[in-house]
Amino acid sequence: MTVKPLQIAIEKKVNTGQKAFIPYIMAGDGGLKAIRKQILFLQDAGATAIEVGIPFTDPVADGPVIEEAGNRALKEGANLKVILAEIAAFKEEIQVPLIVMTYLNPILAYGIEKFVAKCEEVGITGLIIPDVPIEEAKLIQDKIKETSIALIQLVSLTSKEDRIQKIAEVAEGFIYAVTVNGITGVRSEFGKSLDEHIHALKEISTVPVIAGFGISTPEQVEEIGSLADGVIVGSAIVKAFHEGNEKFIRELIPKVKVTE
């Protein structure tokens, strides 16, 4: 498998002893114009890559913060098509890799091939599709094989070792280590086995391991960041943008420290 640009970008960061920080935004929360503002803000604040969430009517993998943000975005008229068009309009200003996070059905409605072509045109480097496990991944893999887009695989705490092996074999970009059983959102603490889980994952994986789900405080960013190659922060970023608390985001990013 060829190494995709997203992996290269993350490894560049990790190889210098730093950790990757990947914030998530709900595209269209705060209006379609907020997409540009939020992406450029996060880029400027030092994000390694940015996950762009597409709102969906039935987001079963998401907790209340992202679901409500999604509902606000839907009311603003956000959907896969207009979000990609919106990003295309300022793509020259974007220097960090963008990852689109969407449920499968909007992609099916768009048409997989048309969607992939549009992503290439816009410069999207990765896809996260939470309702597509490896059993169903061929649907997308076949269409992105020749592109520079990586299909990111998730590994959960419930994934058994033989499954993790299988996932690692097809992993590209990075492996998304889900840090809790459950949906996205704020958690007060993590299970004790998380440490071991991420270590085991890093042993097996040939791509970087980035942890996400439930990471919301500077302490958690620091704690989980020390285990994995980087962290994804979703609900806390979405909440901060919604409340106009950009200061919190600026404080969060330096928490993923240089190791040594």
Partner: peptide
């Protein structure tokens, strides 16, 4: 098919 989050696959 099985279009579910990874956490449910096991």
């Amino acid at each position: 098919g099985q279009f579910v989050p990874e956490t449910l696959m096991t």
